[in-house]
């Protein structure tokens, strides 16, 4: 399949971005700058990534380059969590540990069982799917845990005052946060094939692979993404709770962050 994107095509795709900026300005949502910045940044990032991928995906290059790419992805994802959830001490290491473990298991299954052959062209996008989906969901989970415990501090401390350990006192708020973080992935999984066709499957069918085989591969990928997201969200959620309480079961001070 050949696709050419003309300047006109690129301009047309920005129409909706411009519309979103106009809506934000009209309704005084004050997110015009954020939308414009994220759209511009995404374009620059993707162009740089595209140039780098040309190098990394070259079969003549060593696989170590692809692994290095995955390592950078993991570090960037953990750094993103730290940036978005600065209230939690050591969350960078917690998130990194969760992502590394989830990626190792997912990649181990995908390539160890021969679902895909191991090369840069398969490793990078598959690892990206695991890490990308996990990062989005874990940021939501950790933020919600912080906000729930901060906003319901009086309830949490009432529970602690009755002699509940911090893990028990935080349980209702952790459960609410994990549900919020996992619902989008669960809904996506439920709607697969009905509302949208996953990219990997569509690509394989377009490339001439039998639809049944494409579906099987997609199911494996989908389960691994779901498992990876659910596992990292749970690990990061539980870990965040642990990091927000002292060893003697006191909730640390959580200052409300300034609105950006």
């Amino acid at each position: 399949m050949q696709a050419e994107v003309s300047g006109l095509g690129l301009g047309a795709s920005l129409f909706f971005v411009a519309l979103a900026i106009a809506l934000s300005y009209w309704r005084r949502l004050r997110i015009e700058g954020t939308i414009a910045w994220s759209a511009g940044r995404a374009m620059v990032q993707l162009l740089l990534v595209g140039a780098a991928l040309v190098l990394v995906l070259d079969p003549a290059r060593p696989m170590a380059l692809a692994w290095a790419w995955v390592a950078v992805m993991l570090l960037f994802a953990a750094f993103t969590v730290r940036r978005r959830v600065p209230e939690v001490p050591k969350i960078f290491w917690l998130a990194l540990l969760a992502y590394v473990a989830a990626a190792a298991i997912s990649i181990g299954i995908l390539f160890g069982l021969g679902v895909f052959s191991l090369d840069a062209r398969t490793l990078i996008p598959l690892a990206g799917m695991m890490v990308g989906n996990s990062m989005t969901a874990t940021v939501v989970a950790a933020r919600r845990v912080v906000e729930e415990l901060r906003d319901k501090r009086d309830e949490v401390e009432a529970r602690l005052s009755l002699g509940q350990p911090s893990s028990v006192a935080a349980r209702p708020y952790l459960a609410a946060a994990l549900r919020t973080a996992l619902i989008p992935q669960i809904e996506t999984t439920k709607a697969v094939g009905v509302v949208f066709l996953p990219g990997a499957m569509t690509g394989m069918i377009l490339a001439g692979v039998s639809p049944l085989l494409a579906v099987k591969v997609q199911i494996v990928v989908m389960y691994l993404v779901l498992g990876s997201v659910a596992t990292t969200v749970t690990v990061v959620g539980l870990g965040t709770v642990k990091l927000l309480f002292t060893r003697d079961h006191r909730l640390i001070r959580l200052v409300r962050q300034a609105e950006s």
Binding site: A158, S161, L162, G163, Q164, P165, D248, H249, R250
Partner: peptide, 10 residues
Amino acid sequence: PLALRREVGM
């Protein structure tokens, strides 16, 4: 602390 908080109600 857990035993203490059960003894010292708040």
